[in-house]
Amino acid sequence: MKIAVACADDNLEAAVDARLGRCANIVVVETDTMEFEVRRNPGALAGTGAGVAAAQLVADAGAVAVIAGNYGPNSLSAFAAGGIKAYIGAGKIREAVQALVDGKLEPVQ
């Protein structure tokens, strides 16, 4: 499955970014192979609507789950409506993704 992770950088050793709406990039990881692609977050520079733009990007990437340090209300309602699970994560992206696969991450209510 594909998982989208908020990131300031562009590789799996980088840290999960604190905020989905404002992170520079979104790293989309295929958990079967740990292959990934990096997508620039259009909302990073936007005034308002950053959370919605990031949520749209996550959905367009085909991700079924997303990891970030935190979420705004708009992106959370978008994920909830679309059935994409949002998780709170921190530390290295590779480890956060592994933790999610192992069922050790907390989904946001």
Binding site: T48, V52, A55, Q56, A78, A81, G82, G83
Partner: peptide
């Protein structure tokens, strides 16, 4: 303005 989103099956307006 990112005021409308199509998230899989859902269409949301803000």
């Amino acid at each position: 303005f990112s005021a409308i989103a199509v998230i899989r099956d859902a269409v949301l307006t803000f």
